[in-house]
Design a protein around this nucleic acid. Structure first.
Lengths: 141, 141
DNA sequence: AGAATATATGTAGAGTTGTTCAGACGTTAA
DNA sequence: TTAACGTCTGAACAACTCTACATATATTCT
């Protein structure tokens, strides 16, 4: 949490945190700063990534890639406690990464955000996991 | 850190954390567990996302999307202290998200991982930031 | 050589996060 | 109604993370 207020550049970022020495490539700094997304967008982005930064939550979300599941089954699938799953899902519910459907005493969760789905897929291929049938191979015909 | 050892399913995840009640859709649990990436892959994935979960680091990486920059300019661009940038870059250097080129007393950093670049782009579009000229619009012809 | 510069590192303290346990709540079955 | 169930929540605690400050290292300049 740096709290940089960044409107139009030209003025130093904020007192006390500007570069103590001169810039090496002032033009580029200027250009990049003008393209930098707003504070709030960067923060939101960081929050989303933060939700994906825990192995337990990642396992939950990977499970949900295959379709909706109830808390109990998610616990069995991921190895987390049911309480742990519930806590995790609460965090994911806030920014609408997952959504609930309630049926009797059960709660069925599913992915609510296609971007997160893409982030996960991308991440999985990055990590060398071939993504099984999630990643369709581009075959010759 | 749940530490689930997950080889072939059928056996409960580990003593004490299996579902206290019976499963609702045992077949699906089974299927999803068999597709779940290995512990190490999930952990690595979480680490990568974790690196993207801090606004300061996100700003650094967004800056680096435009090409290499030295620490001093990164500090000016992101509003972080130079020490802060240095610490952040160290974290990013570990998993080879960024790479250094040294020239005299300067250190020029650049993105070393195209997947991270994609994650950032994807995240930026998610967040509503049109990605300026990073995101090429698919026009009619 | 010494001074100034650019970056890197160590460390300590505040703050945050994940996990566990206990218990609450609403729902269904007996 | 009472009991069992599935899920949710709150509190407590350890583990971790971020930031800031001080200092270290390496390079260039005079």
């Amino acid at each position: 949490m740096t709290g940089t207020v960044q409107g139009m550049p030209t003025a130093p970022t904020r007192p006390g945190s500007e570069c103590a020495t001169r810039l090496v490539d002032a033009e580029k700094v200027q250009a990049v700063r003008s393209r930098m997304p707003a504070e709030a967008d960067v923060a939101e982005l960081a929050v989303i990534f933060g939700l994906l930064s825990d192995p337990g939550r990642v396992r939950i979300l990977i499970a949900l890639l295959e379709g909706e599941m109830c808390v109990c089954d998610l616990a069995a699938t991921t190895g987390l406690s049911e309480s742990g799953v519930s806590h995790a899902l609460r965090l994911l519910r806030g920014p609408r990464v997952v959504q609930v459907r309630r049926a009797g005493r059960r709660a069925y969760y599913s992915l609510a955000d296609s971007h997160v789905r893409m982030l996960l897929d991308l991440g999985l291929t990055h990590v060398g996991h071939a993504g099984q049938d999630r990643l369709k191979m581009v075959t010759n015909s």
